[in-house]
Computed example of a mutant assay.
Amino acid sequence: MTLLDGITARLLPTDRLAVNVLERQGDSPGGIPVLLVHGNVSSALFWQELMLRLPANYRVIAVDLRGFGETDPAPVDATRGLGDFSDDLAATREALGLASVHLVGWSMGGGVVMQYALEHPARSITLQAPVPPYGFGGTAGPEGRRLTDDDAGCGGGGVNPDFVARLRAGDRSAEAPTSPLNVYRSAYVHAGFSSPLEGVWVDSMLSTRTGDDHYPGDSVPSDNWPGFAAGKRGIANAMAPGYFNVGALAGLAEKPPVLWIRGDADAIVSDASFFDVNQLGKAGIIPGWPGEDVAPPQPMVTQTRALLEEYAAAGGSSREVVLPNCGHSPHLEYPAEFLAELTAHIEAAEGAH
């Protein structure tokens, strides 16, 4: 691990597995608790700059999810959706001695946070470029209508095998479009963004454990285009719509306030995501696309907005912030703007707590 000055790491025993947590030196155990949850192909290392910038009266903790960073590499049961991660998060909170926390989830971590909120209280929720609430790929319409019974085109079979091989090999080069460094530059951040800590972020990506039980997971054949469907193991399958659906959020009796913050140039989560197999088919990159009626691209942003509008109509509070010329990582790309939005959100929730 590459830790910045002021950040420490420890392996925390829980009743499920040993979880690696990053903490900020000098934080008071009684500070306002903020739990940061990273996304897919990353780790807690990505949060370090934000951790150091948050107010001194916060207790800031970033966790490595299972199969990432230094946390135990326990297998992921995809048929539980993001439930393995959510249960691990609850066990981590309990081991830290915290009754409730402010949750910040990025990308897949946003899905983990939403799943967690269905089962546990939270002081507030911040969703940064979150996975859509009805799974990643394979759904249509703002309501998240599932396209096929087997989630064709979703899960581990849709992940580029050369990218996985380069993760496994620890490739830090820029020699191929599928190298982790180039995927970071082309998908995690907006064009032209640079950071002196780029090597740390690549180290974080390379901490991803690969294989059928981890990333990307297994795959099964399908009679539906494009010929594969979600398996039952591993991380990419855990976000398939047949396994992951947090549409019940709008029905929560106690609704924590939600901040949704995203970039308008996000290549991963958008209504025209090039990480969606159906979008690739529509663009002619994958041959044989059966058309909009059968395999429409997923309206990812529209689905999240529709759910949060329903959440607000049912008595909750939600706010959408869109940062211009920003990719998938607002906290890296526009740290001052992200910090201001996050702290205002947390302070408002604390005032109402």
Rank of each mutant, 00 (worst) to 15 (best):
V322S: 08
V294R: 06
L52P: 10
I268V: 13
S107W: 05
D151E: 01
R53G: 06
G217H: 11
S107N: 07
V21C: 03
R185W: 06
S43A: 00
T14K: 01
N237F: 12
P296I: 08
L11C: 04
Q298R: 03
D212L: 04
G6F: 03
D218W: 12
T14M: 00
P132S: 09
S194H: 15
L45E: 06
I7N: 02
A340I: 00
L342T: 13
Q279S: 14
S43C: 13
G291A: 11
L252Y: 10
L3C: 13
P130Y: 08
A236S: 14
L45D: 05
R93P: 13
F275W: 15
P287G: 01
I32M: 08
H102A: 07
W106C: 00
P133Y: 01
R16K: 07
Y134T: 09
D212S: 13
G251A: 11
A306M: 09
W289K: 12
E143C: 09
P290V: 10
L259W: 04
D162R: 13
D87N: 14
A253H: 05
G26F: 05
A313F: 11
T210L: 01
G263I: 02
P287W: 14
P290G: 02
W225M: 05
P13D: 13
L307E: 07
A152C: 08
S124F: 03
A313K: 15
S219E: 06
P324H: 00
G137H: 01
P299E: 10
G170D: 02
A165I: 06
S329I: 15
M239W: 05
E347D: 15
A283F: 11
G211E: 08
C154N: 00
A336E: 01
S28L: 13
L82N: 07
R24F: 04
G231M: 00
V37D: 06
L307Y: 03
T343M: 00
I61G: 05
M114L: 14
E143H: 11
A336R: 12
F275S: 08
S204V: 03
S207A: 08
P161Y: 12
G6P: 02
D162G: 07
S329K: 00
I261W: 00
G157L: 05
V101E: 04
W260A: 03
S317Q: 15
Y334E: 12
R166L: 06
D87V: 14
P296C: 13
A78F: 06
R80F: 14
D203M: 07
R319V: 01
P55V: 10
D64K: 03
S194D: 08
L147V: 15
E49D: 11
A95C: 11
F85I: 05
G156P: 03
Q279V: 13
G192Y: 13
A187D: 07
G39F: 03
E310K: 10
L323D: 10
V164T: 12
A74R: 04
W201D: 03
G242Q: 02
R10K: 15
H38V: 02
R16E: 09
D203S: 06
R123I: 10
P290Q: 07
